[in-house]
């Protein structure tokens, strides 16, 4: 009995120490956040940094309020966000489908192998001008940029994981007379979910790169356009605002993927 209560006390102490650590982690995170913005503000106010180039948090905040009130922020934000999400989903989906096709036909995968390597090592954003000429300077070509930047790496990573599935799971399904499609659905795909999720995480970042570059090149609206426009008219408050909004949105998307991960991978 005594022993039991002793264990319980130790356990409580352990939980308390965990909580305490978490509290301190949060505290220092907040400190860094405050120091960064306060430092930025002070440095800008005292002209230690050029306020024209680096702006200041208070100016960014003012601009933010103005652009929220007149609705233009949400207009640009909605445009860029839908491009990014679409590019992200298409890139991951197409990459996974391509990986499935390669898995389906090992012969085809052997043929395509060197081409995948070439496409992967190529800087995809360099394709931007060609995409714009081919698809027109529009929403479509920007989404294409967001897609193309992640699709090949997704294909390669997911295909590798498909191939590394323990062949004995396939054997189990074959003993039940499973078809190649059933093998894919019951063994290959689910055992690759963790890998697919981790490519999702990488693709969040990649699609933002593709879309912003795409907007640099063509758009007349969107957050990437805000950056380029601010740069051209030397309004760096606009550039900073756009960067901060992108940071917040990209983080939210990343969190959403982590949430999906918890839903999808139940057995860990």
């Amino acid at each position: 009995m005594d022993h039991k209560s002793h264990t319980k006390a130790l356990h409580n102490a352990y939980i308390r120490s965990l909580k305490k650590e978490k509290y301190w982690v949060r505290f220092y995170q907040l400190v860094i956040f405050l120091i960064f913005f306060a430092g930025w503000e002070i440095a800008s106010k005292n002209q230690w940094i050029d306020p024209l180039i680096f702006s200041s948090p208070s100016k960014v905040w003012e601009l933010f309020l103005i652009k929220v009130q007149d609705g233009t922020l949400f207009y640009d934000l909605g445009f860029t966000l839908s491009e990014t999400i679409l590019g992200f989903i298409l890139g991951t989906l197409l990459g996974t489908i391509l990986a499935a096709i390669l898995w389906w036909s090992p012969f085809l995968s052997k043929i395509l192998d060197p081409y995948l390597v070439i496409l992967n090592s190529m800087p995809k954003v360099a394709l931007g001008p060609i995409l714009i000429v081919a698809l027109g300077p529009s929403f479509t070509s920007i989404v294409a940029m967001g897609t193309i930047i992640s699709v090949i790496i997704t294909t390669i990573v997911v295909y590798t994981s498909f191939r590394e599935v323990d062949p004995n799971y396939i054997k189990v399904l074959q003993t039940f007379g499973g078809t190649r499609f059933q093998i894919f659905k019951e063994a290959i795909l689910p055992s690759s979910f963790p890998v697919i999720i981790s490519t999702l995480k990488v693709n969040v970042g990649l699609s933002w790169v593709g879309v912003i570059v795409g907007e640099f090149l063509v758009a007349s609206k969107g957050l990437g356009y805000m950056i380029i426009y601010g740069f051209q008219v030397f309004n760096f408050t606009l550039v900073m605002l756009s960067l901060l909004v992108i940071a917040v949105l990209a983080t939210i998307m990343y969190q959403a993927v982590e949430f999906l991960e918890k839903k999808l991978i139940k057995n860990n």
């Binding site: 799971y169 003993t175 019951e186 689910p190 055992s191 979910f193 139940k266 057995n267």
Partner: peptide, 13 residues
């Protein structure tokens, strides 16, 4: 024909 492999190979997911 039922065939039980050398290890259990239950699907972990």
């Amino acid at each position: 024909i039922g065939y039980m492999l050398q290890q259990d190979y239950l699907f972990p997911w």
